[in-house]
Every structure is written in structure tokens, then in C-alpha cells.
Amino acid sequence: MDTVINALPFLMDGLKVTLYIFVIAIILGFIIGLIVALFRLAPIKILNWIAKIFVDAIRGTPFIVQLFFIYFGLNSLGFFSMDNTTAGIVTVAINAGAYFSEIIRAGIQSIDKGQTEAARSLGLNATQNMRYIILPQAFRRMLPTITNQAIISLKDTSLLSVIGIADLTQEGRIQASQTFEAFTIYLTLGVIYFIIIYLLSMLASFVERKFVLR
């Protein structure tokens, strides 16, 4: 128990970093996902291709390779220098963005064609149709899948410890090696992740209940 109590302040510092990275990355990822989804559905071939290549590239490569590519690879070109936190946020955002885009695309396509026809027949243009009619309905449908991807991304942030970001996992590793109480520390680490993810799911189902049922 003492081990846990002594380690907890360090783990909480790590948790703050994890949550900070997660929140920024997930918001950016969502914006990326929305843009890529709209590219994918746009009536312009070149945009479709850009979106498809992006999604395939991200889906077809491991997260850790993407992280190394962005942090070590891009930095090695010498055009700019990105610190590890920025690289971590960018990687999680891009990775989540690719998966979000597929979720959003499927959500948009799941809305009945008649909705667009009704909206357009009233004189709404394509953008107004998307904004007021299609996306609000699509988001309600997507929420469970979006939550799922957000949880995966939260867990992915633990991989950022390998580029030295002092996130929850990294702090746990440090504590484990300093105390030689690996069992206790990693169990605590797992419990903390579990609680955070559990809270996230509860938040999501609250939002769902509030908006989806109608």
C-alpha cells in the first residue's frame, strides 16, 4: 500500500500529461476525420483519392511506426524541430483522424437519401444540407463507434512513453524500476487506465441517452 501511496503523486503527474495529450489529439483527430470524410464523399475525384490514400496509409501501418516516422523521421529532415509532446499529439490526432473519417463517412452514408432530397428541394444548398440535416443525424448514429475509437486512442497514448513523453505509462515505468515493485505499480497503472476509460464510456452513454433517443 505504501508503494502505491508514494507512487501516486508521480502517476497523477503522468495522468495529467496523458489526458492533456488525449484531449487535444482527439479534438484535432475529430476535425481531421471530418475533413477527410468530406473529402472522401466530395464529388471531386482528386479529393477522394487523397482521402483514400491517407486512410489506407494510416490503417495499413502500425501506430508505433507512425510515431517514429513523425518524431524521428520528419525531425531528421531538418526543416523544423518538433518536441516529443507535439509529435505525440500529432501522431495520435492523425491516427485517430483516419479511423474517425471512416466512421463519419459511414455515418453520413447511412442517412437516407430522402433527407438530402427534402433539404435540397426546399432550396438549401449542399453545405446547409450537410450542416443542418445530415451531420446532426449522422453524429447521433456514430456516437457509440466514435467513443470506441476515442478509447482506443486513449490507450494508444501509452505508446508515447517510448519517445520519452512523461505520460502515465512512462511515470509507471519509472516508479516500477525505482521501487522494484513492478507487480503493484503496473496493477495500479492498469486500474487508473481502467477508471479513466470507464468514466469516458459513462460520459458517452450519458450524451447518447440525452441526444440519440427521439
Partner: peptide, 14 residues
């Protein structure tokens, strides 16, 4: 289209 209203078989209410 603002001058041409349309009513559908499947209603298509929002």
C-alpha cells in the same frame, strides 16, 4: 427550388 415545393412518397421529414 425555393419556388418549387416538393412532397415525397416517403415524407422525408427531418
Amino acid at each position: 427550388r425555393q419556388d418549387v415545393g416538393m412532397v415525397f412518397q416517403q415524407f422525408n421529414l427531418f
